[in-house]
């Protein structure tokens, strides 16, 4: 039997749809294990073939519950689904409370659904630097749709728009004030907006407010865009509006494929992934080489920051 973390064995099994292998591959990638590079190199080949949904918005908006509803819809359409749910790590302990899975346990034993919780591990904002590698594992696993859930509002270190093809921004009627004050970043990042918890009072008003706010952003002299972000009203509790939302998501994917915008986005995703690789492997390595001895040289003015910096980058 091959060793548990043997890359070629894992690659073969992931490609065959083996959840245990995908799970282990995800750990190696997320932990930046020595074997991760061989895996990622192979998995990257299947990047960009299926739609990646980025479900974002404030905590408590119903992102996880809604994701559960979308999973049901995709399963009825005969698609397999891979889900990554990212929660922040505690900056104090480095630990994390990953509780999103709780909302979608009805899919726990469905062999066509793979769900993984991830902690942000030191990144500012709602995502982890390993998110790209994690997505590629799910792509290689053969998932028909991929969902990435994260808090996050469009101003994070890695923003969801550079990971997902279709960004779904989820809010609620109770967050009306938030819509008013919605940051420009969130407005620009969303491809589809959702007022969830439409079963609660104020749903219609929240939809109207949101549409108004989106329209406002455009009338400031901008040309009409090829895709105007629509606003959907859903209740993840009852399932109302989920089918309509699902159709909007499908329509956006068709738009991306037909317009060339999809290729542009994929290029941006890959560019961000490359930036992260350089950041992790070049900058960080160089910074780790800064030691007391080199700082002493600097203090004695035997060298200067630029010369020392070049030396450390080359070392």
């Amino acid at each position: 039997m091959p060793a548990k973390n043997d890359p070629s064995d894992l690659i073969r099994r992931v490609r065959k749809g083996d959840h245990a292998a995908a799970s282990r591959a995800l750990s190696l990638v997320v932990d930046e294990d020595a074997a991760a590079e061989a895996l990622s190199k192979e998995f990257f080949k299947s990047a960009g073939t299926v739609q990646k949904l980025g479900v974002c918005g404030p905590p408590g908006a119903g992102k996880s519950t809604l994701t559960g509803r979308l999973i049901s819809r995709y399963r009825k359409l005969g698609l397999t689904v891979g889900v990554l749910m990212v929660d922040p790590s505690s900056s104090l302990s480095g630990g994390a409370f990953l509780g999103d899975r709780l909302r979608i346990m009805e899919h726990a034993t469905d062999p066509g659904v793979f769900i993984r919780s991830l902690a942000s591990r030191g990144m500012v904002g709602g995502l982890t630097h390993a998110i790209f590698g994690a997505v590629h594992v799910l792509e290689a696993l053969g998932c028909g749709k991929i969902v990435v859930e994260t808090v996050g509002t469009g101003q994070d270190e890695v923003d969801i728009a550079s990971v997902a093809d279709t960004v779904v921004y989820v809010t609620t009627p109770a967050m009306g004030d938030e819509i008013q004050a919605m940051k420009a970043g969130a407005m620009e990042v969303g491809d589809v907006f959702v007022v969830n918890k439409a079963d609660l009072a104020g749903g219609d008003k929240a939809v109207a407010d949101l549409k108004g706010a989106l329209g406002l952003g455009r009338s400031a002299g901008q040309a009409p865009r090829a895709w105007e972000p629509p606003v959907a009203a859903t209740s993840a509790l009852t399932g109302a509006g989920v089918e309509e939302l699902g159709r909007l998501l499908d329509a956006h994917w068709e738009h991306l494929k037909a317009s060339g915008e999809g290729r542009e986005r994929l290029k941006r995703q890959h560019a961000t992934e490359l930036q992260f690789w350089i950041h992790r492997h070049v900058l960080r390595r160089a910074l780790e080489r800064v030691d007391g001895k080199s700082l002493d040289e600097l203090l004695a003015h035997k060298t200067d920051p630029a010369s020392l910096g070049r030396r450390l980058l080359k070392a």
Partner: peptide, 23 residues
């Protein structure tokens, strides 16, 4: 620790599947 919490009323099948997917 990174703690995954799956909630109440979990069947053995659900717990095993979650443990596998979460490694």
């Amino acid at each position: 620790f990174e703690v995954i919490y799956t909630g109440i009323r979990q069947t053995p099948e659900m717990i095993a599947a979650a443990a596998l997917q979460e490694d």
